[in-house]
Design a protein around this nucleic acid. Structure first.
Lengths: 293, 293
DNA sequence: GGCGGTTTCCCGTATTTTGGGAAAAATAGG
DNA sequence: CCTATTTTTCCCAAAATACGGGAAACCGCC
């Protein structure tokens, strides 16, 4: 039996979380944030905060901006920047301007090479994606308490709602942990203690995401998903899209490692055999698990 | 006029530099390295050295290995690991085992989104690659003093020497700064003071790469390349491959930002009009420059 | 529920980071 | 090629905090 999540028209379509953190902050707020960061955090943590300052809207930052933003002195700002540069995590773009560095791309390649989930995904996803026209398949992975898309297969855009909705550059797209089919499929398969711990730690977020106001409600909701073995959402990520997601388990089946998600036009989805879509995706997930190193 | 670089049969084919740093070290050597690192380097630099420990052969590391390798105490090792984990640069894979973290993939996506060279490359390279069968086109970028491949277009493998030679997962592949057509094309276009500085700093490497034993020789060699506007190598990267590379300049032409390289089977290359290949690549580079934001 | 290994916490000491300014580089302009 | 401006490094005393050792807490696992 396939259950559908209720469409919540009050929630706006999910923004690209990577583009979320807005750069707009009043000078007063900056100072406050700087002081707050300053307290308690060691220099190690402070240095790494520099990386958080880079956003799609601001991919190149000047050192004096860093000083202002994080409340460092010139010396400290340059010290941090130099350490990060020497490690290759930053690189100076031009005079006084720094951007993220080559080491990041290099390390990411290392992860790509070493990631068994990605390897398996590249073998399994193409066929899966091709079976349903005008649909793409996403492979998402769980890191500690972060979900992000590691691979996309299929067309770059879905034709839906009279337009083209593209999910370009999917790899690296962070997904909200408590929203969206891909995340929920993973979340629901987490062991009970971890769900409990997550609830205790991030109760507010869970409630805001509509997962439930108390632990019992959250458990019930996730248990339902777990039993179904899938999550289907229509119109949540985007009004005109539908998503079906199933968990991907480790080879021995002992734990979830990610999720496999098909995204398609909501209109197309209405005409499909939902049960069959899920079955096919689940078969893909099993095949994927079996290919894990 | 197109000049060919002499084939140096004494040098072995370039290994994947990302896989270079071998994990094999005697215990004594480890201790020495640890002590050496320890001296002079601040905690910031020391912490970032943790990232260097991850290799394709050893993508998951235990904390006690870190202690041993870098000479840290348990406390320090955990402090560093925790800071890196909190920043998302590491993630614990399982009990006691840590791997590179989701933030790296996320940051890399940010770079992909923000990199004008990549944007332009994705628009220009496909056509370029398709024009010559059994060839691929590489777009490489210069960061400070590091060259790495940022994009590959065309087939995943070249049919050459009776086999298939594949350059898979090209993005993030670091290239030796003083070897290879792609790097030399960039190097030769660097302003003279930078070349001088590089020579003073890394004279030994330059000599080892056959660039020249003294500054005059290096200058002459690079000047020749710069005048040609291209570098062609046959059998250097791989006995059966040939590469033609041209520099890519910034939109205003004031500086090099990378290189555009065609890789093909050496046998195929012999039958081609070399001049025409270069001309086409140069046209591509110009087009690319014009598309830079 | 108990067990081995992992991770955090605690705290005095001493190493190091810190910050302000001045020197040195690098860059842009003449 | 040389000068003016900005960026970056260097220097050093004072203060902050990273360090290390061990114990306690916290896992996951059997």
């Amino acid at each position: 039996m396939v259950t559908f999540m209720p469409l919540d028209p009050t929630r706006p379509p999910l923004p690209d979380p990577a583009q979320a953190a807005p750069a707009a902050e009043a000078t007063a707020a900056e100072a406050t944030a700087a002081e707050a960061n300053r307290a308690g955090a060691g220099s190690l943590v402070r240095m790494l905060e520099v990386l958080d300052q880079f956003t799609p809207d601001l991919p190149v930052i000047r050192v004096d901006d860093l000083q202002a933003r994080l409340g460092y002195t010139k010396s400290t700002a340059y010290r941090y920047v130099k350490a990060l540069c020497d490690a290759g995590l930053l690189a100076q773009a031009s005079q006084g301007r720094y951007s993220l560095g080559p080491r990041i791309v290099e390390l990411e390649r290392l992860m790509r090479i070493a990631d068994p989930l990605l390897q398996a995904g590249e073998a399994v996803l193409p066929e899966l994606a091709a079976e349903v026209p005008n649909s793409m398949v996403l492979l998402c992975s769980l890191y500690r308490d972060k979900v992000l898309c590691v691979h996309r297969e299929g067309p770059e855009a879905i034709v839906a709602g009279g337009g083209r909705i593209s999910i370009l550059r999917a790899r690296g797209l962070p997904l909200p942990l408590f929203q969206g089919a891909a995340s929920l499929a993973i979340l629901a398969s987490l062991p009970a203690p971890r769900i409990r711990a997550l609830f205790l730690q991030r109760q507010a977020e869970m409630a805001a995401a509509g997962l439930g106001k108390d632990l019992a409600a959250v458990r019930q909701r996730l248990e339902r998903i777990r039993r179904d073995g899938q999550v289907t959402t229509v119109g949540r990520f985007n009004r005109h899209l539908a998503a079906v997601s199933v968990p991907v388990r480790s080879r021995d089946g002992s734990q979830v490692v990610g999720s496999l998600t098909r995204i398609m036009a909501a209109d197309d989805f209405a005409g499909q055999d939902a049960e069959r879509l899920v079955k096919r995706l689940q078969a893909g997930a099993v095949q994927l698990s079996s290919k894990l190193a």
